[in-house]
Design a protein around this nucleic acid. Structure first.
Lengths: 361, 361
DNA sequence: TTGTACGCGTTATCAA
DNA sequence: TTGATAACGCGTACAA
């Protein structure tokens, strides 16, 4: 009665009803045929599937979510999509999730706590059964929000067994410290850093802390460490390096909070006519593809993106499915020694004048 | 009766009902207060908002979508998130969308037609009011699917005024041709390409066609063009270059289908001890950040990522809102001449031995 | 193995 | 300005 008897194409999306009508069964049967194929007779199942194909039916997600009270969807909020930092890990995460029968929804927060909170609410409103978050540091309210709704969240890109949420990640501080140790062993004593803002970014904070710890352990004054804070970005890395080199007592090694900043610094050094690593060593963090394309190739901390993503998928899937209280997983992050870090003043080529500031303690 | 009279925190997400009860109004009023604040009395509105805040209420997206029959959500399917090719454009798109009151949902197809189709269905099932697609080439079924549901789709990263869907993009063929023209003018006659698979990828196909056209116009035999086909990826670009240089009659210029391949080729050339652009010129396409970080800096085609994203947001928002049949927008993509392209055999520095194969026609 | 009927949380129409 | 109430499309007891 509400449908004209013509054969004009309906500009409407087919529903379960339509499929049921065409297959000559009830909507319940269609639903079952779709969700539990083995609980319906083969013959009816075939009829249903045929009707589904004929109509180009696909289930309405919202309705399904509402009725089933679950979506098989996982949400992830990453700080940025602008560069490849999180890309590889996320890809692995998505692949792992798919294998577990989940779909991934990604949002980005632009490194803003407020935006992250909004995105979390959005994803939850959209029915995310679980959440992947980057780093531990965030407002307590968010944890309460998720707890109240019984939505499990897993943190990655950081590791802290005692934090509010379980994590699958690595120890940012220890990793950076290892790198700084190595630089100091090589004879560097004038270190500087280029870092992202450490407010609300525990990975950045931990990395700075790692350098300070290495300095203190080597008998250097950690207070001497100059840290330029700037948003991630190639150009920003370049500008920061320029600032650093303009100071008196310029550093002999610049440890960057990530590869993107480091590549920018590298580029700036080249523009300034500085030889890396002859005049100046530069290091990164993350080991994204960029690091190996840079000239000279970048010494950096290798983050196990793929393994981390895959592992996170496994753990989070378990949390969502079993309501399990989740194992935290600590992954190793090791050094990738490449050309951009070398002893200060290019002493590699053979004996040279010894320079007081470059003592090995 | 179904709720224990204790004050134990309910592990459930608050609904409109809950808010209504707490504010002492009907659900209809809460809904209005949320969606049309000026259609309810200031006093009641305040009460409602307070209840919303108290409860930490956020509307269930699925239910809302079902009742309102629209989601203010736009879906985008991009070929990959693994590198930054689409990142900047997508960011601009998202920003533009937000300004128009829409939310963006992103999915990636891994350059697979089948996956793209699946993602399209998924996004539509999730209620996307409109879709952003990359490139024109896809199965006819998809267009029918979208047409039947009345879901507008906009194509970007390509321009074709006559295609099924309207587009906001640039002319891949013309852009690549301009670059090839330039190389030929410089004296190159032995061109080669490294391209992504052109099946189902009209951008790649058009770029190859552009080079062929330039060769033909210059009196070169387009059939002579060697094209190595490989998936996008830095390593793949490197391997392809190695293959190219192993052939007899190696090229003097390698035009790459995008910057990622080009940077890989650049790296491989360095490993092989080839001087770029002295021994060999290499060019890219896209002008992502990578291009300026590469050594030597990459000559490439500049794609107006930001403008394209912003414009696409504007146009698609109009399509969704007004059901408007959409203006196609053609954007310019111009050359960025940098160091990686130069006349063959490094004749720039002064007189040199002339080499037969390197004639300038 | 299949069908009936209710509820999921929201918007929107219609009355009051 | 507000309140009832009927959809929206699907899953799932429960019954047949």
């Amino acid at each position: 009665m509400d449908r004209a008897p013509t054969d004009a194409p309906r500009l409407t999306t087919p529903t379960l009803q339509d499929v049921a009508a065409r297959a000559g069964v009830s909507t319940a049967t269609v639903s079952r045929a779709l969700n539990f194929p083995d609980r319906v007779a083969a013959a009816t199942r075939d009829r249903v599937m045929q009707a589904v194909a004929d109509l180009g039916y696909s289930p309405n997600f919202g309705a399904r979510a509402m009725a089933a009270r679950r979506t098989n969807t996982i949400g992830a909020i990453i700080p940025t999509m602008e560069n490849a930092i999180f890309a590889r890990g996320l890809q692995a995460f998505q692949d792992g999730l798919r294998a577990e029968g989940f779909t991934l929804l990604v949002a980005s927060s632009a490194y803003s706590a407020a935006e992250e909170e909004e995105q979390i609410r959005t994803l939850v409103a959209r029915g995310a059964d679980g959440l992947l978050l980057i780093g531990h540091e965030r407002d307590r309210r968010i944890r309460d929000f998720l707890d109240a709704r019984g939505i499990p969240a897993l943190v990655t890109w950081a590791f802290d067994a005692n934090a509010a949420h379980p994590s699958v990640g690595f120890d940012n501080r220890a990793a950076m410290r290892t790198l700084a140790d190595r630089a100091i062993e090589m004879g560097h004593s004038r270190l500087a850093m280029i870092s992202a803002d450490t407010v609300g970014n525990d990975r950045a904070a931990e990395r700075v802390a790692g350098v300070r710890k290495a300095m203190a352990a080597a008998g250097l004054d950690a207070a001497d460490l100059t840290v330029i804070v700037t948003p991630y970005g190639i150009d920003n890395g370049g500008r920061a390096l320029a600032q650093l080199m303009a100071r008196d007592r310029a550093p002999t090694v610049v440890l960057c909070g990530n590869d993107v900043l480091a590549v920018g610094a590298l580029r700036q050094a080249r523009l300034m006519g500085l030889d890396v690593p002859g005049d100046l060593s530069i290091t990164g963090f993350d080991d994204i593809e960029l690091a190996q394309v840079a000239v000279p190739e970048l010494t950096t901390v290798h983050v196990p993106h793929r393994k981390m993503g895959a592992e996170a998928a496994r753990v989070l899937a378990r949390m969502v499915r079993d309501g399990a209280p989740a194992e935290a997983v600590k992954l190793p992050a090791d050094l990738r020694m490449r050309a951009s870090l070398a002893p200060p003043r290019a002493r590699r080529g053979g004996p040279r004048m010894w320079w007081p500031g470059a003592s090995r303690r």
